[in-house]
Nucleic acid binder design. Structure first.
Ligand SMILES: [Zn+2]
Ligand SMILES: [Zn+2]
Ligand SMILES: [Zn+2]
Ligand SMILES: [Zn+2]
Lengths: 141, 141
DNA sequence: AGAATCCTTGGAGTCACTACAGGGTCAAGC
DNA sequence: GCTTGACCCTGTAGTGACTCCAAGGATTCT
């Protein structure tokens, strides 16, 4: 399988596949006489594994760790759990901060009521007031 | 005010302040005889404004646009609204995808029940199964 | 005088790609 | 035989918003 075929089969961009190779996530494939990369079914599965992990927003460093477990099935799965737990914690932390952000932005957005000059815009007013150390509608509690 | 004092007054790292200057968000301050930057109260407020926007995760390019409105108060505030709306939309999009991610990761996490070998770990099983094109617990709907 | 702290510039590193630039290879069509 | 177009190669630079470091100059404390 050439790189373009692998790309089509997995939906992963050609440049991304080469990037994974350089980043040591995908082992360097054999080369044909003209220097083209030739992939096997094993490469395809490994790439699919990586993309599935990335769909869960797992960092590549953690994906690399997970791949070592695929290769050594007899080792204990404790670290796998840890990696997923860490990812879950990260997602939850971001979820919470995104929630707070949404509230703050909605409050801020509500300060502008229709078209007027920037000098009279409640949004700008609030942002400037906060920069002066005064209370802002978005961060008041 | 020297850069260290400004840093302490605002809680913004010295390197970040210099970065904002290079990125043209903060105008270049006067220099004293020894070449040290000397900031005014106006700089402090501008920096606080930037940080407040950043607390709302507004991209620096958008912060730059907002700053032009601070400087020209007679212009119409329509673009201000647009910028905040765009930010709100971005936050909501990320919120939705973080929600989905949390569900997926919880489902995946539930596959591992106690300590065992990687070969028997439900998490790894699921990830590998998905790479084979089979259904995975995290993305099944 | 010497040490600690501050300031300067410039460049490299982060993450996970993405986008070239400048070339080589190969099959089909004329 | 030649051109066209689709592929492939390497290597480098860019993204956003910082963060870290090296190598040196200035100031301040003891
Ligand atoms: Zn307005
Ligand atoms: Zn606020
Ligand atoms: Zn397990
Ligand atoms: Zn899945």
């Amino acid at each position: 399988m050439r790189i373009g075929e692998l790309s089509k089969a997995t939906g992963v961009d050609v440049e991304t596949i080469r990037y994974y190779e350089k980043a040591q996530l995908l082992s360097a494939p054999a080369r044909s006489d003209n220097g083209y990369r030739t992939y096997t079914q094993a490469h395809l599965e490994r790439l699919a594994f990586i993309r599935h992990c990335r769909a869960l927003d797992i960092p590549l460093a953690a994906v690399q760790r997970l791949l070592t477990f695929v290769d050594s099935p007899q080792s204990d799965c404790g670290e796998i759990d840890q990696l997923i737990d860490a990812q879950l914690a990260r997602v939850r932390a971001r979820l919470a901060s995104m929630h707070a952000l949404e509230r703050q932005l909605m409050a801020l957005r509500g300060q502008c009521t229709g078209p007027h000059s920037a000098a009279e815009c409640g949004i700008l007013h609030d942002l400037v007031a906060a920069a002066h150390g005064e209370a802002c509608v978005c961060h008041q509690n």
